[in-house]
Design a protein around this nucleic acid. Structure first.
Lengths: 188, 188, 188, 188
DNA sequence: CATGAATGAGTTTTCATTCAT
DNA sequence: TATGAATGAAAACTCATTCAT
């Protein structure tokens, strides 16, 4: 019931609802209900609904960035560095259900502010550097880094959509196999 | 401006706006304005906003399905059949800007009716059969077809997201290269 | 298909719908549908919906007035003159189903124009004279004529409501009995 | 102005407006204005406009039923029991102006739900029992009870219609006289 | 601080009326 | 003259936001 708790409960409720119904499809009082707080309380923690959306976006984009950062920082052969990254993505999805779905499977364009967009770029930059260096070492195919990232990250998101739709189950063996196939896609 | 194309103009306007702002973020009169018709006119062609969303979804899902069907029907070595499919996807995106973005990069769950969902399954089935047969011929890796499809289609959608963000340009050379990499991902 | 036919068909359709759903609850195109004409056609015959309502009101109020006038003009003992009147009312209801329901069981206040209201008064005056003379002859109780009329006409309308609700059937024997009871109510 | 009476104020405003303009002729914001609340507030208390109409109908039908029930329960000679009932009706009209007009002088068919219709039957049953017993005691004419009720209740409503039109004034002497005449109509 | 009833601006939807055919 | 598709003003209804408690 402490302050931090309420903010967290609001963010959690918002995450779930935004994933299920989208930002515009979710009424603020509904978020309040699920969070177990009064509707007015949301406005003590967030300027307005847009601010809540941005806070949620930043929260998860930031945590995802950190998670990737850690893995990217690790040294080693590119194949295994890639594997760490891939598994980190899967782990993030397991540990934070809904977060990636919210971050990457939705349309945010109309409410993300400059700061959020900057964060988005920052995370992209992380991957750019990773892929760029791998290309410099001739470990990864010589295509524009954005293309490589788009395809790999796209393949990952495709799997998550499959999971969401109930068509795909990501057990450990499958994760290992998909990692292998994703690497096959981009290795030189 | 003629009578007959009003429905088409409404669908076109809706497509653009839904891609830009999402279904719930788009007000009906805004669609009417862009279509150059009165707000009431939309309700002559569509029962309500949901029906418009479903009609739009079915229109494009149907056309995409047809486009893929044609390519899938062609015989030949799996590598070249895959190439046809990949290029058909890219061509569809070029010829119908916004359609794939609407179909695949958005959240529809809360307004799609049973018929639309059935159509979705139908198109998925097309790809299942294609991948299933390729696996039977030992041309494609032995993973659950849903996994293979999720990764390949995901890689394609990742590219489209890159295009939308302005990070990726899909010129012919890049298309050929991405086709090659996508095939590398799934070939046995 | 002649002109007069169309106007009559519109009036007939409007009567039925107004009785079922009320004036404000009935959409003009619905009237057109039931009349088998185009929606625009209604506006060739009637200035607008209010004008149609007034025309309908005047048509039936006028016919009802005529029907009563005829009976009132007949000479004879008051008891039998009353009987003629009562039976004329019932006959009118049988021959023109819906007309009385529209005229008397509905709220018209907000769309009746001065001419229609004048007609209403005119019909009331007819009954006033009838009752007034009967009172002068000491055939009817000495109450304000408006009170006598309200009670008798009210009893008649009550029976029609009962018919509409399915609780009352007005066969000839019942009509005779109700006439007797209505007369019992007002005779000196 | 206090919180608790908002629902009551809405119901009161709605009653007045429905009597003046009918259900379909009354816009929701107009009700809100007269009630001195915001338009949205109405939807906090009532699901939609139909629900408001039903609530209003039930409220007054229920109170009218209670008022009659009390009188019907009293023992005594039929003539005086009838008198109590008649005077109770008049009293109800005086104490709750508009209620009877709304309940009985309007068309509700298109928005009353099953529960409201059941209540309507319930009140009718009250009168059926009363008249039925009076007939069993040979105090009232031997006609179908529905016919007797239709005529008496119709006469009463006719008087109210006369009051509404300004043609009739129901002072105590007139009430006594009308009671006498109504009884004359139905007594054996 | 927290609340949730209240609000009115904004949304979806209807419908009386027009007008090109 | 007749039509009915088209319209936009007005209706019903929703919801982000406020504020009295």
């Amino acid at each position: 019931m402490s302050t931090g708790d309420k903010e967290a409960r609001i963010l959690e409720a918002a995450l779930g609802l935004f994933v299920e119904r989208g930002f515009h499809g979710t009424a603020v009082p509904l978020i309040a209900d699920r969070a177990g707080v009064g509707a007015g309380t949301i406005y003590r923690y967030f300027e307005d609904k847009h601010a809540l959306g941005n806070a949620l976006f930043r929260h998860w984009k930031g945590r995802l960035g950190e998670a990737l950062q850690v893995e990217i920082a690790e040294a080693g052969p590119w194949r295994s560095r890639f594997g760490r990254l891939w598994r980190a993505l899967v782990r993030f999805h397991r540990e934070h259900p809904g977060a990636i779905e919210f971050l990457e499977l939705q349309l945010h364009a109309d409410y993300l502010d400059a700061e959020s967009q900057a964060l988005e770029l920052q995370m992209a930059a992380l991957l750019f550097v990773f892929i760029g260096e791998a290309q410099a070492d001739e470990a990864v195919v010589d295509l524009p880094p954005a293309v490589v990232i788009a395809m790999v990250y796209g393949a990952y998101l495709g799997l998550l959509r499959g999971v969401a739709a109930g068509w795909v189950t990501l057990d450990d063996a499958t994760v290992a196999a998909t990692e292998e196939r994703a690497w096959a896609m981009i290795r030189r």
